[in-house]
Simulated scan of single mutants.
Amino acid sequence: MRFRRPSPVVVDLVVVAVALFDIWVNVDPAEPVRLGCALGGAVALLLRRRLPLITFLLALPAVLVSDAAFATLAALYTLASLTRRRWLLAGCALAFTIADMAPWPAPKFDLSEPSTLITLSYTAATAAAPVFLGQLVQARRDLSLRLAEISEARDHERLLTAQTVLAKERAQLAREMHDVVSHQVSLIAVRAGALQVGTQDAEVKEAAATIRRLSVQTLDELRHMVSVLRAAGGRPTELTPQPSLAELERLVSGSGIEAELQPDLPDGLPPTVQRAVYRTVQEALTNVRKHAPGASARVRIHRQGGTVRVTVTNTAPTRPALPLPSAHYGLVGLRQRAALLGGTVTSGPTADGGYELRLELPAAGS
């Protein structure tokens, strides 16, 4: 039986209940200031998922005036599991340590006493525990996301490999049909035509005409089948529409990342130029998703004089990228495609830690 995780609302209510129990054990109801600060920290835990830092700040006074520390520790754990700012976590842990070591209204903080140093070490360790636990949960969450992305990428790669093998087999079959079968059927049609012209026998003439007609029909069907197989094998034919600029919006919206498209191109660009632009944007967005997790991208396409310019820029990644297997052929293929059309592809990092890929092509193609 698979364990079902409780809903976040139930978890939050349980955390608040534990914080109230901590107040009931450690705070005297006859002290309204201490009781009010402790209750405020416990109630603030309801905001910990949306406003973790504010929740910690609201719960911190409870540690300063009382011994009810659970709410503050829970808020510190939530903050550590949601933020990536290490300096903020260090400051919050230090604030908890100071508040716990210097209780209000009569702080006692004498470092000359050995017992004070022992208490300080214990309090600092208590503050560090939820920080480390929260960072561990955050790392586990990031790792789960990356593993899901890797699994999706492998499935996609496996599908592409299967499609490539199938395309090669179909292309080979198309060549065999064109070079062997079509040639032999053509010979049959020619010989049948010669027999039809050369014979005087009416029955033989009719049979030859039938053979010739059926051979011509078979040739037409073979040509159609060859064109279908070549189209399935990756040949650019009318049966396999190649990507154009009209499909860029769907490509960007379905890229799986936050991307903005800024197209400014006239109609009538050659199909080869449109395909090169499409493939460049496709490869750039794939690289952003693979090597810059959490980054956003901007795709700008415009025509300046007789040159089409494409710029794909992404921001710095928000999560560390895991090393993935790659043959590094993507950019090489883009450069080769651009060179065949008389253009260039350049790429490199940006000043803010992102990356930029630029394509320049003659608008008329090559």
Rank of each mutant, 00 (worst) to 15 (best):
L47M: 12
L47N: 04
L47E: 11
L47C: 14
R48Q: 04
R48N: 03
R48T: 09
R48I: 05
R48C: 03
R48W: 05
R48L: 04
R49C: 02
R49V: 01
R49M: 01
R49E: 07
R50Y: 02
R50P: 03
L51S: 12
L51N: 04
L51R: 15
L51M: 11
P52A: 06
L53W: 09
L53S: 04
L53E: 08
L53Y: 01
L53N: 02
L53K: 06
L53R: 13
L53M: 03
I54L: 15
T55E: 05
T55I: 08
T55W: 03
T55K: 11
F56R: 06
F56P: 00
F56S: 02
L57D: 03
L57R: 14
L57G: 08
L57C: 14
L57S: 11
L58I: 13
L58S: 06
A59W: 06
A59F: 09
A59V: 11
L60Q: 07
L60I: 06
L60W: 08
L60D: 02
L60R: 07
P61L: 15
P61I: 12
P61Q: 14
P61V: 13
P61D: 14
P61E: 13
P61S: 14
P61C: 13
A62G: 14
A62H: 09
A62P: 06
A62C: 10
A62F: 08
A62Q: 09
A62T: 06
V63G: 08
V63H: 07
V63N: 12
V63F: 08
V63M: 10
L64D: 01
L64Y: 09
L64P: 00
L64R: 15
V65W: 12
V65P: 05
V65I: 13
V65E: 11
V65G: 08
S66A: 11
S66R: 06
S66I: 04
S66L: 02
S66F: 03
D67P: 01
D67N: 14
D67L: 09
D67K: 14
D67M: 12
A68L: 07
A68G: 06
A68Q: 07
A69H: 12
A69K: 10
A69N: 12
A69S: 11
F70C: 03
F70Y: 15
F70L: 13
F70N: 02
F70A: 13
A71Y: 08
A71V: 03
A71C: 10
T72D: 00
T72L: 01
T72A: 15
T72M: 05
T72F: 00
L73Y: 04
L73A: 05
L73S: 01
A74Q: 06
A74Y: 01
A74I: 01
A74V: 09
A74R: 01
A75T: 08
A75F: 08
L76Y: 00
L76F: 03
L76G: 05
L76I: 04
Y77H: 14
Y77T: 02
Y77W: 15
Y77F: 15
Y77E: 05
T78R: 13
T78E: 13
T78W: 03
T78S: 15
L79V: 00
L79A: 05
L79H: 02
L79P: 01
L79Y: 02
